[in-house]
Each structure stands twice: as structure tokens, then as C-alpha cells.
Amino acid sequence: MKKLILSIFTLFLVVTAFGQYDPKALVILDAMSKKYKAIPAFEANISQTLTNDVEKINEEFKGKITVKGDKFKLVLPEQEVINNGSTVWTYIPEAKEVNIDNYDPNSDDVNPTKIYNIYKKGFKYLYLQDKTEGGVLCEEIDLVPEKKDAQFFKIKMFINKKDKSIQSWTMFDKSGNKYKYTISKFNPNVKVEDSFFNFDVSKYPGVEPVDLR
């Protein structure tokens, strides 16, 4: 009986906490956001892991990401995603195809240029604990969307306690998928032109453009 009461009490605390906006978490998130806003452009190695315990899915992809303001280029083994702030190209080399779509900065999609500011609108946030992630002491924070029909029901962030850089973040969807992104070899001194974030179809002979706009 005591265990049952304790479990109910613990659940009550969790639900109550997520009904609020944790001031400690906000201080950490603001410091993290300020750090990345001060960087004109950066490049990093990134690993993406997709897991689903029920479906027994465990897939990992490694790639490189370059970010400049609201622009980014993500290069993975099987595809490239390029966003120049208004247009998004998804290039699939094996299929010799590139999908072209408009970029909506107000959408609920989570992309590398949003993760540093995503907490500022439409999310509740909670500091959980200090925890070592990838050998680095981090501050663990959960973000929960205010909208019940949001694409992801939780985003877990590990923020380097020392320098406020993002060590990793994991997005949880309602079908049981967990998408984890881990940052390594971070380079904040990249000089890159805006043209780097455009996909010139004419330079890819045989590639079929699929315009979804």
C-alpha cells in the first residue's frame, strides 16, 4: 500500500511539474540559446539513431551538418537535406531524385536551426538532473509541447553543464519511435557562403527534380 501511495505521489509531482515552466530549466535553455545565436556559422559531425522497442528497430546514421542562421545542410549516407531559409531540397542520390518544397518557419517541424530556440514557444520545460551523457557532464531537460496533437510528445535535451553546448537531443513520437541526435567535433569557426545552402539541379546530370511547392 505504501508503494502504491508513493507511486501516485510521484506521478502527481511529475504531472504538476509539467504543468509549469521550470525557472531553472529556463536559465539553462536561455544560456544555451545565447551561445548559438552568437555563432555566425558552425559545422559538426552528427549521429542520428532511430529506435523503437516494440518494433525492434535500431538504426544509426552518421553525417555532417553545417548551420548558418536559418540555413542548414545535413549530409547523411543516403540523403542530403538543404535549407536556404525559404526552400528545402531533399536529395536522394540512389534514386537520382531531389524533392523541392517550400520551407515554413512557423511549422511544427523540428530542424537543426530550430532546436536552439524551440523551447521559447509552445513548450513546457523541466530540469530533471545533472547526468553524464557521452562522457560529458550535462544538464538533462525535458520539453513537452502544449499542443496535444504535436508531432512529438517530448524532446529530451542534454546540455553541456560547463559551456552550455548541446550534447544530444531525443525526440519521442506517439508511435514509439525515438530519434536521437548526438553532436561531436563541433567547429564554431566555419566561413561559408550563402550559396552553399542552395541545390543547383543543373550540376547533377540525370537527377530528376520533384517540385512539391
Results as ranks from 00 to 15, higher is better:
2 K>L: 08
7 S>Q: 07
8 I>R: 03
11 L>P: 02
11 L>A: 07
13 L>I: 13
15 V>Q: 07
15 V>R: 07
16 T>L: 10
16 T>G: 09
18 F>H: 11
18 F>M: 06
19 G>A: 06
20 Q>D: 07
22 D>W: 11
25 A>M: 08
29 L>C: 03
35 K>Q: 11
35 K>P: 00
35 K>N: 07
45 N>T: 06
48 Q>I: 09
49 T>E: 09
50 L>N: 09
55 E>N: 15
55 E>D: 12
58 N>F: 12
61 F>E: 11
66 T>Y: 15
67 V>A: 01
68 K>W: 12
68 K>F: 13
70 D>Y: 10
73 K>C: 11
73 K>R: 15
73 K>A: 13
79 Q>N: 09
81 V>G: 08
82 I>Q: 10
85 G>R: 07
87 T>A: 02
94 E>C: 02
94 E>Q: 12
95 A>M: 14
98 V>K: 04
98 V>L: 09
100 I>T: 05
106 N>I: 02
107 S>L: 03
107 S>E: 01
109 D>V: 10
111 N>K: 05
111 N>I: 06
114 K>P: 02
115 I>S: 03
117 N>W: 03
120 K>N: 10
130 D>I: 04
133 E>W: 04
134 G>C: 01
134 G>T: 00
136 V>N: 03
136 V>D: 02
139 E>F: 12
141 I>L: 09
142 D>K: 10
150 A>V: 04
153 F>M: 05
154 K>E: 11
155 I>G: 13
159 I>D: 00
161 K>D: 13
164 K>L: 07
165 S>M: 11
165 S>G: 13
177 N>L: 00
179 Y>P: 03
184 S>T: 09
187 N>W: 02
188 P>A: 02
188 P>C: 01
189 N>Q: 10
192 V>D: 01
194 D>K: 07
194 D>H: 06
195 S>E: 14
200 D>M: 04
201 V>A: 11
204 Y>T: 03
205 P>S: 04
209 P>E: 06
209 P>Q: 03
210 V>G: 06
210 V>W: 08
210 V>M: 10
211 D>N: 15
